[in-house]
Design a protein around this nucleic acid. Structure first.
Lengths: 233, 233
DNA sequence: CAGATCCCTGAGGGTTTCCCTGATGCCACG
DNA sequence: CGTGGCATCAGGGAAACCCTCAGGGATCTG
C-alpha cells in the first residue's frame, strides 16, 4: 500500500489526466513515467504492484485511466479489469502485457478493457494508445486488430487454434496455476474459491483439452506455462 | 582495452560509466534510464533489442557494463552472456530477468554474468546492483544468494538442479514416468509393482529433491523431462 | 421476449491418491 | 557384525480426484 505519491507533484491535477499504473515491476512503472514525462497534460498519480492495491487506490482516489499489466502477483490482470469495471464502470483501462496478443487481447476486451498493447511496442505507440483511450476511443495494436477481424470473419470466438484458447478466463487462470505446480486446495485458497469449484474447473479443462487423467493435466499445464514464459532455456 | 578511437558523438563520456542496455521492451529500457537519470556518473549510451544488435554495438563501441534481459527475441540471454564473454572477456554483465532466481541465476553466473536480479526488485536495489558490478564486485539478490549457498552446501561441484542425480535408478525411472504424465497406478502397472511401492519411491524422490507437495513433484518431473529431451544442455 | 448455451460457482458421494509410519529382505562397506 | 542405503510392500487417515447435478448470471439466437 504505497501512497499515491512519488516525486510527482500532485498539486495541479485538475487540468491533467490522472493515471494509475498497475504493474509488479518497479522499473517498468518508471519507464511509463519517463515516457509521459514530457506529456504535460498527463500525470501519473498512482502506482500499484498488486491488484488488491490497485482496487484500494481506485476506491479512495479519482483516476481517468488505469494502465494494467496482465501478470500480477495476486490475481490475473483480466480479473482486475473485471473488478475495476464493477467498481468504476466508466473508468477506462488500458492493458499492457508482455504476452502475445493472440491469447489475451480478446479476453481483455471482453473483460471491459479499452485497449490492449504489448510491452514490446515502441514508446510512441504506447503514448498513442494512452491518448486514444483517454479520448474515449478503443486502441488495439495492429496485430491485435488483425486477430479481432479474423475472429469476426471466421465466425464467432470459436477459433480452434491451440485449444488452450477454448478455455474460459477462469479456466485459463487455473490452468496457469496448475502449471506452476500449485495444488487444488492451494489454488482454491489463492482465488478464494471452494475446493469444489476448483475441482469443477479442472474437470472442464480436462474435457476441453481432451485430457483424461490428473497427471496428464498437470503435465500439459506445466509444459504450456514453461513454453509461454520460457522463450528460451 | 581497445583503442579509444571511436567517433562517438557523445562528448562527456570520458568521466562516466558507459552502460549498454539489452532488452526487447522499450518501456523497460526507459525505466532503467529514468532510474539512472540522477546518477550523474553513469550514462546509458546504448540500447539494443536483440542479442545480435547488442553484439554489434559491443564490437563497435566501448562499454563498461552491459545490462541484459534473459528473454530476448532472437536468442536466450544466457547465450548472449556467453557470446559477450568471448568477445570482451572483461566486460561485466548484469542479468536482469523477470523470472524467478531459481531458474536462471545459476545458469547466468555460470555463463559469466557478474550479477543477477529480478525485475521485481525495487529501484534502489537495481542501482545498488549496477554499482556493485561496476566496481568489480558480484551482485546477487538475497534469494539468489541463498540458492547459491545451498548448492554449495548440498552438492559440491555439480549444480543443485542436478540433484536429480542423487536419485537411485529405480527412483529416476519413476521420476521420468512422472514427467511423462503417468499416474501412480499407471506406473505401478508399467513396472509391475505395487501401488504402495511407487508411493514409497515418490516419497523418497520428494525428500531427495526437497519438494514438499505432489503437484510440485510432477512439475519438477515434467520440467526435467522436457529439458532432457528438449535439448541436451 | 423466450429459449438455448455457456460460465462460474458449489454440493454429494464414491474412488483413488497422498503421505506418514513401519517392516521385511538384500547388499555393500567398514 | 552392525549400520545404512535400496527396493519392496501394508495400514490407515487425510486429501485429492472425478462424476453428477444445480442454480444464477450473462450472452446469443430465433
Amino acid at each position: 500500500m504505497k501512497a499515491s505519491s512519488s516525486k510527482h507533484p500532485v498539486t495541479l491535477e485538475d487540468c491533467r489526466h490522472r493515471i494509475l499504473i498497475v504493474d509488479d515491476h518497479p522499473i517498468f512503472r518508471k519507464g511509463i513515467a519517463m515516457l509521459l514525462e514530457h506529456e504535460h497534460d498527463i500525470i501519473i498519480c498512482g502506482e500499484a504492484e498488486t491488484a488488491a492495491e490497485a482496487l484500494g487506490l481506485v476506491e479512495r482516489h479519482e483516476f481517468e485511466l488505469v494502465i494494467a499489466d496482465i501478470s500480477l502477483k495476486d490475481i490475473n490482470g483480466i480479473e482486475l479489469v473485471k473488478s475495476l469495471k464493477v467498481l468504476k464502470p466508466h473508468l477506462p483501462v488500458l492493458v499492457l502485457s508482455m504476452h502475445d496478443e493472440s491469447l489475451y487481447a480478446e479476453r481483455a476486451l471482453r473483460a471491459g478493457a479499452r485497449g490492449y498493447l504489448m510491452k514490446q511496442a515502441p514508446p510512441d505507440q504506447v503514448v498513442a494508445a494512452i491518448r486514444h483511450v483517454l479520448s474515449g476511443e478503443l486502441y488495439l495494436s495492429a496485430a491485435a486488430n488483425l486477430l479481432m477481424l479474423n475472429s469476426f470473419v471466421t465466425g464467432r470466438d470459436s477459433n480452434s487454434k491451440s485449444s488452450v484458447e477454448k478455455l474460459s478466463d477462469r479456466e485459463l487462470e487455473i490452468f496457469e496455476l496448475l502449471g506452476q505446480g500449485r495444488g487444488t486446495s492451494m489454488i482454491a485458497h489463492d482465488l478464494r474459491l471452494s475446493v469444489k469449484t476448483v475441482e469443477a474447473h479442472r474437470s472442464h479443462i480436462k474435457t476441453k483439452l481432451g485430457i483424461h487423467t490428473a497427471p496428464e493435466l498437470v503435465r500439459a499445464a506445466v509444459e504450456w506455462v514453461t513454453r509461454r514464459t520460457g522463450r528460451g532455456d
